[in-house]
Simulated scan of single mutants.
Amino acid sequence: MGKILVTGATGFTGTALCRRLINDGHEVVAFIRPTSKTGALTELGVICKTVDICDAEAVLDNFTDISKVYHIAAAYRTEHSTTETFIKVNVEATRNLLEAAKQNSIERFIHCSTVGVQGEIDDPPADEEYRMKPGDHYQESKKDGELLARKYFAEEGVTGTVFRPVGIYGPGDTRFLKLFRSIARGVFVMIGSGSVLYHMTYIDDLVEGIVLCGTHPNAPGEVFTLGGENYTTLKELVGEVARVLGKQPPILRIPYLPVFWASIICDKVCKLAHISPPIYPRRVEFFSLDRAFSIEKARRLLGYAPKVSLHEGLSRTADWYRENNLI
């Protein structure tokens, strides 16, 4: 067997996936940027190659002896990033990798999309067939990248699978640190009713699902949503975080609409001033949009079965934050 290529290997999900693949006995190659910190990957035994995935020729030149690709890399949301940046990384770089995979007749290509391609969920929980309705430039570019991958799988002879992760968290990730920190300090304020739905996925369960996408005979040609066992209301999630931190659940609440309109004004003013806004619509919308999904297709076709409960996952995450003096 050839080497397994992982893009986005220095990120939270990519590093966890590399660790799993190495532990399973595979030889793993990572395409990294010149500025990437590779200490953790090198320690695992990952072969790190400086390759710009936006450069089609560089990708093809470095595709030697690759049998499988896990394409995790993406340009993620940063406020005021250009549409061109999202397209360059999330669409064109994906095309470069797919084309190299095609020319080298690799065993399987596993593409990481996002549930964000479906936008706000009007009738939760959403399954894989639920309509696509991206809500911003990032989600739009991820939709285009996913559709491109599916086109290569259907028409260009590349064997592959798409997965859409939901609300990734766990030790080592800091995406939810602000939530934990504000609850730990007793300053969390709920914007709106807290009745919207939110879905979390513990990193170990996600990696298990990704590996199933790359190995299970039922996976090729399919799209899978990979999420945790259950979803909750935002109020329930906040209450669970408070419990694992040994705090009383927050009770302060403010109306949604005034905060949302203030975020729009703040965002526009900061754009004119060329500074990053302290509050912006996308962050406020976290409190108003339903994010709940069905994982039944992955259960049925792949045998996907999340093992880490929300309470256990949040406890492990809180312990890691404490051990690293983050809360």
Score class of each variant (00 low, 15 high):
residue 1 M to G: 02
residue 1 M to C: 03
residue 8 G to L: 02
residue 11 G to P: 02
residue 15 T to Y: 09
residue 16 A to N: 12
residue 20 R to E: 15
residue 23 N to C: 05
residue 23 N to S: 12
residue 27 E to Y: 11
residue 30 A to P: 06
residue 30 A to L: 14
residue 32 I to K: 14
residue 33 R to S: 09
residue 34 P to T: 11
residue 34 P to W: 03
residue 35 T to I: 06
residue 37 K to G: 06
residue 37 K to R: 08
residue 39 G to Q: 13
residue 42 T to F: 02
residue 48 C to I: 05
residue 52 D to E: 08
residue 52 D to H: 10
residue 54 C to M: 14
residue 55 D to C: 13
residue 62 N to L: 03
residue 63 F to M: 09
residue 66 I to K: 07
residue 67 S to P: 11
residue 73 A to E: 01
residue 79 E to G: 02
residue 85 T to S: 14
residue 90 N to F: 07
residue 90 N to M: 07
residue 95 R to W: 04
residue 100 A to Q: 04
residue 101 A to S: 15
residue 108 R to G: 01
residue 110 I to P: 10
residue 112 C to I: 00
residue 114 T to V: 05
residue 115 V to D: 00
residue 119 G to Q: 04
residue 119 G to S: 04
residue 122 D to L: 03
residue 123 D to V: 14
residue 125 P to R: 06
residue 125 P to Y: 00
residue 128 E to N: 10
residue 130 Y to L: 07
residue 130 Y to W: 05
residue 132 M to K: 10
residue 137 H to A: 14
residue 137 H to C: 06
residue 139 Q to M: 08
residue 141 S to G: 03
residue 144 D to P: 03
residue 146 E to G: 11
residue 153 F to D: 08
residue 160 G to F: 00
residue 169 Y to K: 14
residue 172 G to P: 03
residue 174 T to D: 07
residue 176 F to W: 11
residue 184 A to Y: 06
residue 185 R to F: 07
residue 186 G to Q: 08
residue 186 G to F: 10
residue 188 F to Y: 15
residue 194 G to V: 03
residue 201 T to L: 15
residue 203 I to K: 14
residue 207 V to A: 00
residue 209 G to F: 13
residue 210 I to E: 03
residue 218 N to M: 14
residue 219 A to I: 00
residue 229 E to T: 13
residue 243 R to V: 13
residue 248 Q to A: 10
residue 248 Q to C: 06
residue 248 Q to G: 10
residue 250 P to L: 05
residue 250 P to Y: 13
residue 262 A to H: 07
residue 264 I to Q: 09
residue 266 C to D: 08
residue 271 K to C: 06
residue 271 K to Q: 12
residue 279 I to A: 01
residue 279 I to W: 02
residue 279 I to M: 14
residue 282 R to T: 14
residue 289 L to E: 15
residue 292 A to G: 08
residue 294 S to F: 08
residue 294 S to W: 06
residue 295 I to K: 03
residue 298 A to S: 11
residue 301 L to E: 07
residue 301 L to Q: 00
residue 302 L to M: 04
residue 306 P to V: 01
residue 313 G to N: 09
residue 313 G to S: 13
residue 313 G to V: 05
residue 315 S to D: 06
residue 315 S to L: 12
residue 321 Y to S: 12
residue 323 E to F: 03
